[in-house]
């Protein structure tokens, strides 16, 4: 696999490199403060509700070595957080636009591969 291209740096004293789509180049640099910086850049304030979903996605990646597309994201959220939250409308409200991609980015993971 080729090294991901560095496109720009996340605005912070540590200059975390990002790829052309805004995903963290070095996954090991991720921590909660990086997620907050990325969210801030998107105009999103991370609440406890956001965090529990980010943790679901990180656990998914840890187990399956891939970030989930929307459908499995909904299923994983339902399994972890219950019926109420395991719905696409809920995830869309928390992460408007493309929840699967946005959450993967904020979670410091690569873009979901089978998510066009």
């Amino acid at each position: 696999m080729s090294e991901p291209k560095i496109y720009r740096y996340l605005y912070s004293p540590n200059k975390f490199p990002l790829d052309p789509e805004g995903y963290l180049v070095n996954q090991s640099e991720w921590d909660e403060s990086v997620a907050h910086l990325m969210a801030e850049e998107e105009g999103l304030t991370l609440t406890a509700e956001h965090w529990e979903v980010i943790q679901v996605v990180r656990a998914f990646y840890h187990r399956y070595e891939m970030a989930p597309a929307m459908r499995p994201l909904v299923k994983a959220t339902k399994n972890a957080l219950g019926e109420e939250k395991g719905r696409s409308i809920y995830l869309m409200q928390l992460f408007p636009g493309s929840p699967a991609k946005r959450i993967a980015r904020l979670a410091g993971l690569p873009k979901p591969t089978n998510c066009l």
């Binding site: 998914f60 399956y64 070595e65 597309a69 459908r71 499995p72």
Partner: peptide, 17 residues
């Protein structure tokens, strides 16, 4: 190293129904 394992993807299939 660098080669993706297959088993995690097989395990993941059920998450995609």
């Amino acid at each position: 190293p660098g080669q993706k394992a297959t088993l995690p993807t097989i395990d993941m299939l059920e998450m995609y129904d």
